[in-house]
Design a protein around this nucleic acid. Structure first.
Length: 432
DNA sequence: TCTGGGGTCCTAGGACCC
DNA sequence: TCTGGGGTCCTAGGACCC
């Protein structure tokens, strides 16, 4: 048996931990540049006319009318809260898979407990210790956990946030209830295709012949079908595997035509990715750069291009990566256009312990030492304390604004929760 | 005016080997 | 006129996830 534990309205719930006075207000977290709604609490989701993932400007009326609280994304906070969430879960079983920033699978086998009851215990503990509401789905396969978790949330008054599928009757009932487009692993494309065939719910999907599923939806689809039938195909993955690619691509604050500014952004993204690369002890054998205009502005000339630059030798050295990334950028940059976004991605990653050398290119051991020193200083002080000049001094001209970002309460000493009304409210609730 | 970002996995088809 | 058979590796593109 597995359990899926996921945080309800995760990012908003995490924001509200530090704003207990606003607990009963609808709230949303916006994407980078305050563009789209990427998270909402239940109060917001239930508002008439509210649509998740829509651009904020289209929701302006609804957000204003109901005084919805808005937040710019604060990933530093979410990542730290997520870490605490996982730590908390490890108190209940040592077999935990962090599936995403707000979800984890637990192995419930070998636990001599009543599953549902245990689920409630976990739920209460997370609420008490982290102030985060979670839903829990328990079932013999991961895909069925996802189903159970949907039931748990939808019928919260009955389930109290925990639902278990442990017999054929509950499995079939739940699958018949779940719409095909809401099945984990069925995306927009296949949902449409299946609906056109008359497949409306998850149960009908499980009645399709294996051969059809295999040839139309690959082994991924077939695995899903079996999982929904109660045959476990996906095991618990406890090991935090190193990433196979590390990239970043962010929209600019305004549309840019100036090559130097785009180069500065590119350079700074590479610097960020290279840091992540080194932290997981990987090197990249190539770097991918892509550049694009704003496809929503149909009146503008559109352009999209990408280039893969192979490095002379696999590396995680910021300076080397930046140099090659900028070479690539130069090749795909077309003057006179209004650019929306540049992205870089380190690809072809493998452990830095097994670098294949290049007969014609020698790595200077000093650069490794230099890089380590830079990393150390940035860790000790603040990210960006030491950086390459090519990452520049004009951030304000390309970086998107995050005016509504809350303090990074748990990771920055100078942004720690202030002794103001919020704290008084916390004390009033008997917390400290 | 304003429309996110960071990932993974699978497959077909091309290029190549002996 | 007739032109093998058995493989591997790589990559772009499609599909999905949160």
């Amino acid at each position: 048996m597995f359990a899926l534990v996921d945080i309800n309205g995760a990012f908003v719930s995490m924001e509200y931990v530090f704003r207990p006075g606003d607990r009963n207000k609808p709230g949303v977290v916006l994407s980078n540049g305050d563009g789209c709604i990427i998270a909402a609490n239940k109060l917001a989701k239930n508002l008439p006319g509210f649509e998740m993932y829509s651009p904020a400007f289209q929701m302006e009326e609804v957000l204003k009318k109901y005084n919805v609280l808005r937040f710019s994304p604060n990933f530093e906070l979410y990542v730290d809260m997520s870490r605490r969430f996982i730590e908390e879960l490890k108190c209940f079983t040592d077999r935990v898979e962090m599936y995403s920033i707000d979800e984890a699978f637990l192995d419930m086998d070998f636990l001599n407990v009543d599953y549902t009851e245990y689920g409630h215990t976990i739920r209460k503990a997370i609420l008490k210790n982290l102030d985060l509401p979670v839903g829990i789905g328990i079932a013999p396969t991961k895909a069925l956990c996802k189903v159970a978790s949907k039931v748990a949330k939808k019928y919260i008054n009955v389930t109290n946030g925990v639902f278990t599928i442990d017999n054929e009757k509950s499995r079939i009932k739940a699958l018949k209830w779940l719409k095909i487009e809401d099945v984990w692993g069925i995306g927009r494309r296949f949902a449409k295709k299946l609906q056109a065939m008359g497949i409306k719910n998850a149960y009908q999907f499980t009645q399709l012949p294996d051969s059809w599923v295999r040839s139309n939806m690959t082994v991924v689809g077939l695995r899903l079908k079996h999982e929904l039938q109660g045959i476990s195909c996906l095991s618990l993955n406890e090991i935090d595997d190193p990433k196979k690619e590390i990239g970043t691509a962010k929209s600019f604050g305004t549309l840019l035509s100036d090559y130097e500014l785009i180069k500065e952004a590119t350079s700074s993204y590479v610097e960020y990715c290279a840091g992540k690369l080194r932290r997981q002890n990987s090197v990249a054998s190539a770097i991918l750069i892509h550049l694009e205009t704003n496809s929503f502005r149909t009146q503008d000339e559109q352009y999209y291009n990408r280039i893969v630059v192979t490095l002379p030798v696999p590396t995680s050295d910021t300076a080397l990566l930046i140099r090659h990334a900028c070479d690539g950028l130069q090749k795909i940059f077309k003057p006179g256009l209004k650019y929306k976004r540049v992205g870089v991605s380190c690809i072809g990653l493998f452990p830095d312990s097994s670098i294949q050398g290049n007969l014609f290119f020698e790595t200077n051991p000093k650069t490794i030492k230099l890089q380590k020193t830079v990393d150390f200083l940035n860790m000790k002080y603040e990210q960006g304390t030491i950086r390459l000049a090519s990452s520049g001094y004009n951030r304000q001209h390309w970086e998107s604004k995050a005016a509504l970002r809350s303090p990074r309460y748990t990771t920055r000493l100078n942004e720690i929760l202030n002794f103001g009304e919020d704290v008084l409210a916390l004390q009033f609730k008997g917390k400290n």
